[in-house]
Design a binder for these strands. Sequence first.
RNA 1: GCCAGCUUAGCUCAGUCGGUAGAGCGACGCACUCGUAAUGCGUAGGUCAAGGGUUCGACUCCCUUAGCUGGCUCCA
Length: 652
Amino acid sequence: MEPRHAIAPMWVMAFLFGRSEIRDWRWASISNLQSPISKIWRSIMSETNPIPYAESELYRIRHSAAHVMAEAVLALFPEAKIAIGPPIEDGFYYDFDLGQENGKPRTFSEENLAQIEERMKELLKQNAPFEHSSMSIREAQAFFADQPYKLELIADLAAGKLDENGEATAVPASEVSIYKQRDFVDLCRGPHVKFTKQVKANAVKLLRTGGAYWRGNENNPQLQRIYGTAWHNKEELDEYLRLLEEAKARDHRRLGKQLGLFHISQLVGSGLPLWLPKGAVLRETLENFLRQAQLERGYLPVITPHIGKLDLYITSGHYPYYKASQYTPIDVDEEKFMLKPMNCPHHIEIYRSEARSYRDLPLRLAEFGTVYRYEQSGELTGLTRVRGFTVDDSHLFVTPDQLEEEFIGVVDLIQFVFQTMGFHDFRARLGTNDPSSDKYAGAPEMWAKGINAIRQAADKAGMNYTIEEGEAAFYGPKLDFIFRDVLKREWQLGTVQVDFLLPERFDLEYTGEDGQKHRPVMIHRAPFGSMERFVGILIEHFNGAFPLWLAPAQVMMVPIADRHNEYAHAVSRQLRAVGMRVQVDDSSDRMNKKIRNAQLQKIPYMLVVGDKEMENNAVAVRTRDEEDRGALPVAEFISHATTLITTKSMEL
RNA sequence: GCCAGCUUAGCUCAGUCGGUAGAGCGACGCACUCGUAAUGCGUAGGUCAAGGGUUCGACUCCCUUAGCUGGCUCCA
C-alpha cells in the first residue's frame, strides 16, 4: 500500500493538539515519501517539526494498538486471515479476510466491533511485552504457512520488490522482522511500544468497519478493514472525538439544507446539485469577484455550449483516456455528441477560429464552464464530489517565451483569490507523471519541459511546493493548491497545468515575428477549482457564517412590533438601494424569536427597530456574534457596512 | 463499481415481543404587539423509500431495487 492510500481521500483530517510530530508526518506523508521534497520545504519541516510522526510515541502507540486489535480479532475469529495494519493519521487500521459465508465474504457486524474493542482492552491491560526478533525467509514462510497475505508480503520482501508497507525496496531481504506479543506474531518492521499497557485502554476506540481491497487494487479480494484511533490518554481521545462531532456539525450537506443553499433531488439525479436562491447568490458573488479580478489581468470572457461532437474529444484524448467516467455519448441523426467533460477543447476551437499571430498572445480565454463526469455512485458526496460542476476555467495560449511569466501571473492570481477568501493556510503540490504508468500522453521531453517550466516559475515566485509523482493530468504536469481549513483538514482547490500536448493534437499555431508558424503552449488553470466543491468547502470552513460580502442575506430587519414594520421596510429599501441584501422579518413572531431565527440563519447583522429608532432614523445593530452594538443612524450603518463589503473584510 | 449500515410527517427523531403510527420544530389559524437566542392555544400534515415474499396479521421478519452515509477503488 502506498503511503498516500493510508490517508482519507476526500480530505485529510489532522487534529493537532499542538503536537508538531503529527503535523510533520501528515505533511510529509501527503507527498509521496519516495519523492524528492524541495529544499525550502525540507528546511521548513526541519525547523518547525523536530520529530517526524513515524518516530513519535503516538505512532508506536497506534501501531501497537493495531497489533493488539488483530490479536483480539484472532481470539474471536480464529479462522481470520490477517493482512496489514499500519498506523495512519489520527489512528490505525487492520485488514482481515474472514472467509466466506453462504458464498459471500463474511463481514464484521456492529456487535463484533464492540466485542473486539472489549477484548482488545482486556489484552492491553494484561500488559504483555512486544518482542522484536527476526526470521529467515524460509522460517517465516513456514511460520505464516496458513496466512496467505503474509506469504505474499514475505515473497515480495524476498524478491526485493516491495516491503511490508508497500514501498519499493532496493535489495532482496534474507530475513524478515517479526514482532510478537503473547502468542500473536506479526510480520512487521515496527517500531512498537515496550508493553501493551503503554497503549491505554481508555484512550483507544474502534471507529468503523469498511471494505478495502488487498493492496488497494480492485482486482484483488476485498478485505474487511477495522479503523480505530488511539491517543496518549483519555483526554486526547475525548478531544479528538469532540472534534469529529464538530466536523459533523459543520457538514456542508447539513448546513446547506439548514441555510437553504442547495438541494439534491433524486429525480434530477445524484451528483447534480440544484442551487437554491441563497446558494446562487453566494456563488454568483464569488464568480463576479473572480470575473473582475480576471478582467483586470487581461482575461477575455468566452461562453461555450455544454455538449460537443465526440470527434472533438477523441482528438483531445479525453474520450479514450477517460471513457469510463464520462456520460455515454448522445446519438442524434447518426452523429454522436458528448456532454463536455472539460472545457479545453471548446476553448481550443475558439483559438483556432482565426489565424493567430504572436501579437495576439498571450490569449487568456475564461469561462465558468459546466462539465459533466460520470463519477462512480459510491463516490458522490454533497457538493464536494458531484457529476455536474462548474469550473472557473481558463486557458492561456502563450508563446514558449511567455510561459514562465504567464505561469507566475496565474500563481499570483490564485494567491490573491485565496488571500481575499481569508485562506492563509495553504501549500502547493507539483504533480508529475509516473513514467511507469501508461495513462500519460505525450513524449518524455514534453513532460520534462513542462515540469521544468513549473519549477522555474514556482521558484521564481518564491513558492514552496512538494513534488508528487503520478499526480499529473494526462496531458501535462500541474501545480495544485491545497488549502487547510479551520479544522485542519486539507482540500485540493486551485490548479495550474502546463500543456504541450493539446496544442500538438489540435495542430495549434501562430505566426511569429519571423513570419514562420510556431506552436503555442497552453496553461489550464482554475483558482476555485469547481464552484460546487469550493462552496462546499467554504460552508464548512466558515461553519455557514460567511464574511459579510459573501453572506446570502447580509441584514435581517427586526421590527419589535407591527407598528414598526413600515419603518423596517423603509430602511430595507435604503439598504437595497446601495446594493445590500436585506430581509424584513415582519412575521407575528416576537422580537426574541426573530433574533433567534436570524441567528440560526447566521445572518451577519440584525437591525432591531422600535419606537426609539423610528424617532431618530436609526437602527439598533446586533451582529451574529451576539454583540448588541446599540443604536446607529441609518446612514452611519450604511457607510460602515458598505465599506466592509467593498473591502471584502472578514470583520463585521 | 465493491463492502457495510441507514431510509418513519417539510425538518430532527421516538416507535417494546409482529396486532396497520407518535413527539418537537416548521406550516396554517386565532389571541398577544412584545427591546436583543424559542408567547400561548388550536388545526392540518404519513402508500412507515419502492416492489415482492412469509404470516390470520408486517413500520417490525426475508428477498430485490433505489437513494443516502461510512470505507475501498477512481478522480482530467
